[in-house]
Nucleic acid binder design. Structure first.
Length: 516
RNA sequence: GGCCCCGUCGUCUAGAGGCCUAGGACACGGCCCUUUCACGGCCGCGACACGGGUUCGAAUCCCGUCGGGGUCACCA
């Protein structure tokens, strides 16, 4: 039997990183066993069922390299892959369950149920719903339902121990007497999650259900649905949830705004990911651009494989020391035996480190291609692209680029005039008679041929020795004068990229800054 | 509240009764390298939730306590 796994997001419009991890585990397991990974859109809740809410999710997966064998965009033998289009299947399945005596139309009103619930509460008893109509003979129930449609409930069997043999959590046993008869379909015939998911997973021949731990409690109920339908249940594997950074609470979209810290806001502004006129509040409210969504990392220039690596390693490990590994390595080694049972907190700092490891070894071409749109968005580059110059800049930045948008902090001055940092100017440029020294060194530079790193370095050594000045001090001043800041690639590399004329021009500009 | 799950450094993890004086990674602190910043190298800080058993021996097995989470919907 070929392995078939699935990921079934609801169309919220954004790809959540917790979902990415669950999807990744499904993908890994299917691919490891030569099986199929299916993407299904769980859009039974019609209200927010907008087509445009699906595309960002598909785009996110595509960017990450998580491919699906059946689902939106490609179809497949078990379609449609949208729950909204499968209503007739649920209705059919529900009627069949009534017919076989496993389900019944429940005519108790909400008020009646509330009375029973209150009564149970009063007696400090747990309320377990058992509909009054559950004893109806199947034929009568069916006839009655057709005459007067109402909610359909599953008939939960009495005195049974339901066993979920979970691949990660182990054997979990629950008494059926504690499970109330669940509503599986509304009066209008629309299905509820616990039912729709089972009908679909069965129809799509899903063999392994890999999903978040929060679904474990619902699983016995679903087992009962499988049983009622006369279908062998799939194998379950519930993966622990991803918690918010430094918290023991689930990372949820609901409090995503909490992670939009001043740092994050500054980052988004720096890369011009949001309109400049937006207030901090507006940025906070923007749902897709915050650290729980994949889009956030894409816009900041994280390489997709770094997210894959990080999230694959969150809750699962290859061995006692491997941190950096390819998707392929994960694929060949993935297994439930090395998935943790306890929740894992998302650590943005570690993700950032992983990202750096990938950027470090990425090909120059990829970095160039990634950096160009970032520079353009930042208004540092127009439509005319001098690719050679960008090659030089990216090379000069070297390992300083952990994420591609770091090019803005280390190399913005290559594309515009220096923006002088007051502190840098005061400390390095307006130090004693440095301005005069720099003026004289500019003269030297005029005659520097060729204008390359070794020559410039030699000139600076020679000049400072002659003037009995510290080479380091002059070097620092030169950096601030030409770049405006105290950090960046090697100063001679910078000068070479500027070229002689531009270097001299920048020194001139710097020498005109009044001392304060 | 009932039921279910979980509990090793701040965080991710290794650990299947002796290899554990508990290993690695991120973060943090220090030093080295460096004419800035980053990279790199070295060192340091830092954990078996608690209490009882079982055993010659327990982070590992059992019980209890405490703590955390999830779920009990005509949401998914």
């Amino acid at each position: 039997m070929t392995v078939r796994t699935r990921f079934a997001p609801s169309p919220t419009g954004y790809l959540h990183i917790g979902g990415v991890r669950t999807a990744l585990f499904n993908w890994l397991y299917a691919r490891k066993h030569g099986g199929q990974f299916i993407l299904r859109i769980d859009d039974t809740d019609a209200e927010r069922n907008r087509p445009e809410a699906i595309q960002p999710i598909l785009d996110g997966f595509q960017w990450l390299g998580i491919t699906w064998d059946e689902g939106p965009g490609i179809g497949g033998p078990c379609g449609p892959y949208f729950q909204a289009l499968r209503g007739h299947l649920y209705r059919e399945a529900a009627l069949k369950l009534i017919e076989t005596g496993h389900a019944y139309p429940c005519y108790m009103t909400k008020e009646e149920v509330d009375v029973l619930r209150k009564q149970a509460e009063g007696e400090k008893r747990n309320y377990v719903h058992r509909g009054r109509d559950r004893t109806l003979a199947p034929q009568d129930a069916l006839r009655l339902f057709h005459e007067k449609p109402t909610t359909i409930r599953l008939k939960v069997p009495d005195d049974r121990t339901v066993v979920v043999d979970d691949q990660i959590c182990g054997k979990v046993e629950v008494q059926s007497n504690l499970i109330g008869d669940p509503v599986i379909a509304r009066a209008d015939g629309s299905a509820l999650y616990n039912f729709a998911t089972v009908v679909d997973d069965a129809a799509m021949k899903i063999t392994h259900i890999i999903r978040a731990k929060e679904h474990l409690s619902n699983t016995p109920t679903q087992m009962l649905v499988y049983e009622a339908m006369g279908i062998q249940p799939p194998i379950f594997a519930h993966v622990p949830v991803v918690n918010a950074p430094g918290s023991s609470k689930k990372l949820s979209k609901r409090d995503a705004h909490k992670f939009v810290t001043p740092d994050v806001i500054a980052m988004l502004r720096a890369v011009h990911a949001v309109p400049a006129e937006w207030t901090d509040e507006q940025i906070k409210k923007n749902e897709s651009l915050n650290p729980v969504m994949v889009e956030y990392y894409r816009i900041l220039g994280y390489l997709p494989e770094s997210l894959i690596n990080y999230f694959g390693r969150l809750g699962w490990s290859l061995d006692d020391k491997t941190e950096i590994m390819s998707l392929e390595t994960m694929r060949t080694n993935f297994g439930f035996d090395r998935v943790n049972q306890s929740p894992a907190s998302f650590d943005p700092q570690k993700l950032h480190w992983v990202a750096g490891e990938y950027t470090k070894v990425a090909s120059l071409e990829r970095k160039i291609d990634g950096v160009i749109p970032i520079l353009q968005r930042g208004g540092l580059l127009g439509d005319q692209i001098d690719r050679d110059k960008i090659v030089q800049v990216v090379n000069a930045c070297g390992d300083r680029l952990k994420i591609l948008s770091d090019v803005l902090t280390y190399g913005a001055f290559f594309f515009r005039d220096p923006q002088y940092d007051a502190k840098a100017v005061k400390q390095r440029l307006h130090k004693e008679d440095m301005p005069e020294l720099l003026r004289e060194f500019a003269e030297v530079l005029t005659n520097a041929e060729p204008f390359d790193v070794p020559t410039l370095e030699a000139k600076l050594q020679e000049f400072s020795a002659a003037k009995q000045a510290k080479a380091g001090d002059l070097n620092h001043a030169l950096r601030v004068a030409t770049t405006g800041v105290m950090i960046g690639p090697g100063v001679f590399e910078c000068l070479v990229i500027f070229g002689k004329a531009e270097t001299l021009r920048r020194i001139d500009i710097a020498l005109q800054i009044p001392k304060t």
